[in-house]
Computed example of a mutant assay.
Amino acid sequence: MYKVLVVDDSAFMRQLIKSILEQTGRFSVMVAQTPLIALDRVRKFKFDVITIDYEMPYMNGVELIKKIKEITDSKILMISAYTHPGAHTTFEALSAGAFDYILKPSGEDEIKEFKYELIKKVTAACEEYKKIRSKETLEEIKGRKILLEESLIERAKSAKVVGIGISTGGPPVLEKMFKSLKSDFPLPILVVQHMPPNFTKAFAERLAFITSKCIKEAEDNEEVKPGCIYIAKGGYHLAVEERQGKLYTRVLDLEKIKSHKPSADILFSSIAEACEKDAIGIIMTGMGSDGSDGILEMRKKGAITIAQNEKTCVVFGMPKAAIEIDAIEFVMSPEEIVELLNMI
């Protein structure tokens, strides 16, 4: 049975989270109403997962995360407010070491969705905490060596666009990658990061501030500019289309794909259609299988397709799903991916 600590100064939220998790029969739950009590619990007991609210007495959630990380390697989930300011604090929590976040329900009509997300993400965090990282595979080593081959670099230089699909564990990885990307990087990058409305605009603003690069939430029907990074808008799909030799974004209000909106499958599929072999598709850390079908279309068109390696993923689900259907040509770490991009 997995052990979970719930840290929240709201008696209602403590009881709600505790009852949801315990009803599954898979979790043993302990609670703490203040950060000071939480730190005492963490010193005395071992937890697989700790859920933390942001606004609490004595210290906020981000400060608590940093102190917990000094004591234990337990996975931490942030309970986030569904607001623009809430988004900014969530990204601070992820940078401080949180595994993922869950949106706090603002009314009874959102309890069902909260229950689904809570069980899914706490389970995933527990499984990742227990999992022993495997050694590097020959495929990963092959991916590292092939970076030096001129044929791959030449293929990358002919690309018109880079597409990235990413989910759990994504924000800190993208921050590091975009900071390391050379200032004169010539290609546009389109990113599907699974996030709700309100969060994607805040995320784009944060990335632009941290990296000093052209990064924005994608708008419909805008010409895709060289060197700019476009973040898919939460609650909408992002696609790209070619018109008279130029690429344009499309922001689409369609049904969810594999429970996601935005969906990496939609983005990758549109890139395959618009750019054929002249593109790079990258699928990175995240739960589930979003992006696998779309990036397979890209590979069939001759595009370069890359998956993040298991060792560096917070959750290996999305890359693994793509690898298993032979949609991936190269498996690399984020550092190796940036190394390749900086050769363009």
Rank of each mutant, 00 (worst) to 15 (best):
E128M: 15
F330W: 10
G107V: 03
G234E: 03
K256V: 13
K182M: 00
H84G: 02
S167C: 10
I257H: 12
K75C: 12
F316G: 05
K216M: 12
A204N: 03
Q244S: 14
V49H: 09
A239R: 13
E136F: 06
F268Y: 12
L247S: 03
R206G: 01
M30H: 08
D8K: 10
G86V: 06
V6W: 08
P85V: 11
A38M: 12
T51I: 12
D9M: 12
A208D: 10
L340T: 02
G97A: 09
L36S: 09
D290N: 09
S80A: 15
V161Q: 02
K145V: 13
T72A: 15
A274T: 00
K182Q: 12
I164H: 03
K301T: 07
K176W: 06
I280R: 00
L103I: 15
R250Y: 10
T249L: 09
A321G: 11
E139I: 10
E219I: 14
F27D: 11
M177S: 02
I215G: 06
L247F: 14
K311W: 04
I295Y: 05
K258D: 13
I76P: 04
E149I: 01
M343N: 00
V7Y: 01
P171A: 05
V224M: 01
R14H: 07
E63P: 10
H260S: 13
K182D: 01
L21Y: 03
Y58T: 14
T90R: 07
S74G: 14
I17P: 11
I68N: 10
D109Q: 13
S269M: 11
A32K: 00
T312C: 11
L174F: 08
K213P: 03
F99H: 13
L247V: 01
G170A: 05
F199A: 04
D265V: 12
E205T: 11
A202T: 15
I325Y: 06
T312P: 11
K256F: 07
S292F: 04
I37R: 06
K261Q: 12
K201I: 13
E219W: 09
D8S: 15
K176P: 04
K179I: 10
S95C: 11
P85W: 08
E22I: 03
A202P: 06
M177Q: 09
S180F: 05
T200H: 11
A204Q: 00
I189A: 04
G227Q: 00
I344A: 01
V240C: 13
I306K: 04
A274S: 15
S10T: 13
A81W: 06
K301I: 07
K201P: 01
K121P: 05
K104Q: 06
L36H: 06
E205F: 07
D53F: 03
